[in-house]
Design a protein around this nucleic acid. Structure first.
Lengths: 133, 133
DNA sequence: ATAATTGCAAATTTTTTGCAGGTTC
DNA sequence: GAACCTGCAAAAAATTTGCAATTAT
């Protein structure tokens, strides 16, 4: 389990109870949108306001603690910042799974006349469970 | 130049002047968000309403005429539906350029226990112009 | 002690909806 | 002529803002 308090402090953010619980929720869910963070966090801290979540989602992105995952036709989800990876998104059950970017993939993404800094790769299809179901 | 009227009719949509001008705007821009479509289209058809754009963006997506390009920290852009491709997004000037998915890339994206149906690849970095500037 | 953060309520922005009148096929 | 589409205005949903009280360092 990540230590959310030091994660925040290391990135110049005060460690409030609101922030650590938002981070815990994101971490446990893997990928989660604002409304679902709110519902989850409110169970433990009923006074925590949606405005606080909005403000913190912005500031935590700015301070490299979390990352936005924009998606077609639905609200963005958020994940903890971690090594660059791809998303396997199941078109049936909606599950989003992280998977490593292999050296071969890196290699294949070298494009002429473009200096690559970062990539965002979403693969849509059928996860193992839904293939068998 | 694409024939927007038949593009619409082939996809079970009536060819209204509003729809053809939205498509023309998207086509010329390459990738454009709703507000910019509205601004552009309104110049020619001042009575065209934002509600009509919202409604048509939805219906044109359902009918496979256009595709949403969701982006971090800004409103989604839309593009005409075309062959699967990657986006090269310049972090300096913001330009979005399409580039082909090579067979080698396809190959590299074969993942165990995942039946791939579609991919969405955004590469962020510096375009040629901004590298030299 | 200081500066930052929270929660509330209000404001703003974005998106959706209902419906009368107009258009496409 | 039937079904569909548009534009308006109003409603609903999503996000941001201002500020007094509280909290972290």
């Amino acid at each position: 389990m990540t230590n959310y308090i030091s994660l925040l402090k290391n990135n110049d953010l005060k460690a409030t109870i609101q922030r650590t619980s938002i981070l815990k929720t994101i971490d446990h869910a893997g990928h989660i949108n604002i409304d679902d963070i709110y519902d989850s966090v409110k169970e433990q801290y009923p006074t925590l306001s949606l405005a606080t979540i909005y403000k913190n989602i912005i500031v935590m992105q700015e301070n490299n603690v979390i990352i936005e995952v924009p998606l077609n036709g639905e609200k963005s989800k958020y994940e903890l910042k971690k090594e660059e990876h791809m998303h396997l998104i199941c078109e049936v059950c909606g599950e989003i799974k992280d998977t490593q970017i292999t050296p071969a993939t890196k290699e294949a993404l070298v494009i002429e006349n473009f200096r690559l800094k970062a990539s965002q790769i979403n693969l849509f299809g059928l996860c193992e469970k839904c293939q068998n179901a």
